[in-house]
Amino acid sequence: MDSGKLVYMANQIGRFFQNQPEAEAVANTADHIKKFWDPRMRKAIFAHVDHENGEGLQPYVLKAIQALKSEAATPKV
């Protein structure tokens, strides 16, 4: 998947929540991406964070992606 497009989409989502307190904005952005993005899209943006340091992502959107990434890496009990 084109990481540039995914970065754009993620920032667009984050922009809606940016008026909220940061913790809430991060959580809501992560929740939206988790609920609406197919796993391969999430995987592609995780790779972008890994390989490109999340270049282009707004800071709180980057935090949201990192939170999602950690959650995905945590084995489900």
Partner: peptide
């Protein structure tokens, strides 16, 4: 349990080869 692709995402993924 995971959401699938939306139409524009399907087309992106097709161009991407998946």
């Amino acid at each position: 349990a995971e959401p699938g692709l939306r139409i524009p995402n399907m087309l992106d993924a097709a161009v991407d080869g998946t």
